[in-house]
Each structure stands twice: as structure tokens, then as C-alpha cells.
Write a protein that binds this DNA or RNA. Structure first.
Length: 104
DNA sequence: CAGTTGACTTGCA
DNA sequence: GTGCAAGCCAACT
């Protein structure tokens, strides 16, 4: 039976986010996909909301590069990591999307 | 225990 | 890229 533990998913998300190098970002959908739940992108966000400070939650953005609805510090932290932001407030995913899990 | 909400994604226009 | 609608699942009310 395919029992899915939220705890395992959360741990996988945290472990993955912790591995993100500076200057790179990842989308919730990508994280959810790598954790084996492409449809649970919301759970990734929910996990991040409960994530401890030892997790680089600020390196996680949504699929257009938009930051968290109510987290002004995130942009500052990303800018400090040489992450470029566009005038519309979106991160340049084309340059900063992390591919460490699958280098081609 | 049913309904609403949310740090989201995808598809269509 | 932007806007609207539908889908998805856990947590909250």
C-alpha cells in the first residue's frame, strides 16, 4: 500500500532546499516533483511556512520567480546572494534556476 | 466531520 | 509575462 508520510515529504523538502547553493533558486513545483509529489506544490509552501531557519526557504520561489506574498526580507536575502530581480519583482529563473540534481 | 484556506501549478486566452 | 479558472492536498475553523 502506498502510504505517504507527510513527515518524509517535509524532510525531503528541507533536505533538498538545504542543498541549494547560493545564487540559485528553486520553484515549489520542482521541489514537489523531486520529492515525488508534482501535484503537492502547495504542501511544499506549507512545509516552508513551518520550515526552521536552518533551511534556505528564501531560495524557494513560485514558478514565475515571484517571492512569498508576505515576506519582504526574502528579496533582500536573495539580492545578497547575487540573485537578480526584475523590475516587476520576479527573479530571473532562466539564470538562477538550480539544476544541481540533473546536470546535462 | 464538512467547509474554507493557502509560502502553488497548469491550461487557456 | 499577465489574467482567469480548475485542480490538488494538508491544515485550519
Amino acid at each position: 500500500m502506498s502510504e505517504f508520510n507527510k513527515e518524509a515529504f517535509y524532510k525531503a523538502v528541507y533536505d533538498l532546499v538545504k542543498q541549494i547553493p547560493s545564487g540559485f533558486v528553486l520553484t515549489y513545483g520542482t521541489i514537489a516533483l523531486l520529492c515525488g509529489r508534482p501535484q503537492n506544490s502547495r504542501l511544499v509552501g506549507k512545509a516552508m511556512s513551518q520550515a526552521p531557519q536552518e533551511v534556505f526557504a528564501y531560495r524557494v520561489v513560485n514558478h514565475i520567480g515571484r517571492t512569498v506574498p508576505d515576506w519582504a526580507e526574502q528579496r533582500v536575502l536573495l539580492e545578497a546572494e547575487e540573485v537578480t530581480f526584475k523590475e516587476n519583482g520576479c527573479v530571473d529563473l532562466k539564470k538562477h534556476i538550480w539544476r544541481g540534481y540533473s546536470t546535462k
